[in-house]
């Protein structure tokens, strides 16, 4: 899948993320995973695979942190 043609993208605040993994479970196109690295709190934060986001926003709603996840959508020209 070509990132340039994706409908959306996900930005994750890796220091706000507590690595609960709910977004990974919830994501319909399965484009999130937990990072192998630790953040400053010692959690494995979620990360975006980099392609395939549909900007559905589900991950944003299941995330318990206020600003852990930001969902972006490609603007129609």
């Amino acid at each position: 899948m070509d990132e340039a043609r994706d409908r959306g993208a996900v930005a994750i605040d890796r220091d706000e993320c507590k690595g609960c993994g709910l977004c990974v479970e919830a994501c319909p196109p399965r484009v999130l995973r937990l990072s192998g690295e630790l953040n400053h709190c010692g959690y494995h934060p979620a990360e975006y695979l980099g392609a395939g986001c549909t900007a559905c926003g589900i991950c944003y709603y299941v995330c318990p942190e206020p600003g852990g996840i930001t969902v972006l959508r490609r603007q129609v020209a």
Partner: peptide
């Protein structure tokens, strides 16, 4: 990062109520 892509706009993000 996706946020660097100029054609993207935030649709779900940190609420201003926080």
């Amino acid at each position: 990062m996706a946020s660097d892509t100029p054609a993207m706009a935030v649709v779900h993000g940190r609420s201003p109520i926080f």
